[in-house]
Nucleic acid binder design. Structure first.
Lengths: 123, 123
DNA sequence: CTTCGTTATATCCAACAGGGAATAACGATT
DNA sequence: AATCGTTATTCCCTGTTGGATATAACGAAG
């Protein structure tokens, strides 16, 4: 039991500058905003405070040429947030990058995993 | 000027468990230990305290089946540290993984970069 | 014009990470 | 046995991160 570690998570962060980067957290947040249409709901879904979720959205909107998330206040529903065209594009590129990178390094990952103390492949 | 971001750094962390992971920092530390033959010198080279460097070495030695770094105290030189066979292997695998992953995602990275506010490719 | 749920923003505060410094242990060389 | 530079370990203290909370703004709908 304990911590299986059968699925080593593959975290990939693209660092553009000291303040600007794109990683798994922001990607997941974008996905939840896409699903829920709300920054606060997306944050809740990740166990993240609204403050932090909003901050992440803010930095993303600032670092890319066009905003990734468009938000609105007021109205019957109180407001909400949706991904822009660039938002969808960035998310798609990041997910594609993750998948290709992980696939390309699959054998290296397997070898590293096989050297762990927690029996990784069973052997 | 400001922050060019011409070279988006590619950070890759392999997360095996809540406490166990392998990332750029540990890889670089292993390299400096290899070069300098000392944990403290390796830490200094990275602007890192000895305490932190030692902690990283300790966790690495604990998470892999065999230690990656073998250290010794006393003697004329005061002591030192060298990479074990597994230490060299893990470092090599990680570096190979990094390179293959980055290469595989090069076009995705380029597209993401082209969407940044800081003119990335010039256009 | 009241209601309602969300965005937007500021303030306070607890937890954590990690640096700094102090100390001991160590062992080959002199 | 005295020296010396490194490993090993502990304690204190600071800065940062981010949660919790409060409040205002907003605007469609009733």
């Amino acid at each position: 039991m304990s911590t299986p570690a059968n699925n080593p998570r593959f975290r990939l962060r693209l660092v553009f500058g000291p303040e600007d980067w794109m990683g798994p957290g922001k990607a997941e947040l974008l996905e939840h905003i896409e699903e829920t249409g709300s920054i606060s709901a997306a944050g809740r879904a990740m166990g993240m405070s609204y403050k932090r979720a909003w901050q992440l959205v803010d930095t993303m909107n600032a670092m890319f040429r066009a905003p990734l998330v468009q938000s609105s206040r007021g109205g019957a529903s109180g407001g909400g947030a949706v991904l822009t065209e660039d938002g969808h594009a960035v998310l798609a590129e990041y997910r594609a990058l993750e998948e290709k990178a992980q696939e390309a390094g699959a054998d290296n990952i397997a070898r590293l995993q096989s050297m762990l103390v927690d029996i990784p492949g069973g052997k």
